[in-house]
Amino acid sequence: MSEFLASLEFINYIEMVVSVLLVVLAIFTLTMKSLIKSVLFLSSLSMLSVVSFVLLKAPDVAITEAVIGSGLVTTLFVFTLLYVHQKERDVS
C-alpha cells in the first residue's frame, strides 16, 4: 500500500490543484461585485501562493508572503473600506 502511495507522486497532484485554484481565485478577486469579498479573495490567493512557494522550495519567501501579503496588505484594504463605511454612515 505504501509503495503504491509513493508511486503516485503526490507532489505533482498538489501542484496541479494549487495552480488551478490560483487562477480560479484570481478570477473571483476581479469579478466579485462587493469590494470586501474581493479583498478576502485576494487574501486567500496570497495564502495559496504561500503553498506554491513552499512547493518551489523557497521557505524564506513563503514566510514573508504569509506575514506581509496575506496579513498586512489585507488589513490595509479593510481599514480603507471601514473608513469609507464610516463616512457613508455619517452622511446618511
Partner: peptide, 25 residues
C-alpha cells in the same frame, strides 16, 4: 526570534520586522 535566527533558519529580518508590526496592529 525570527530576526535573531535569520542566519540559520528560514525567515529573515523582513518577515521578523513585519511580525513585530503585526503584533502592534
Amino acid at each position: 526570534y525570527i530576526v535573531l535566527h535569520a542566519k540559520t533558519s528560514p525567515g529573515g529580518s523582513f518577515p521578523g520586522g513585519a511580525m513585530i508590526a503585526s503584533s502592534i496592529l
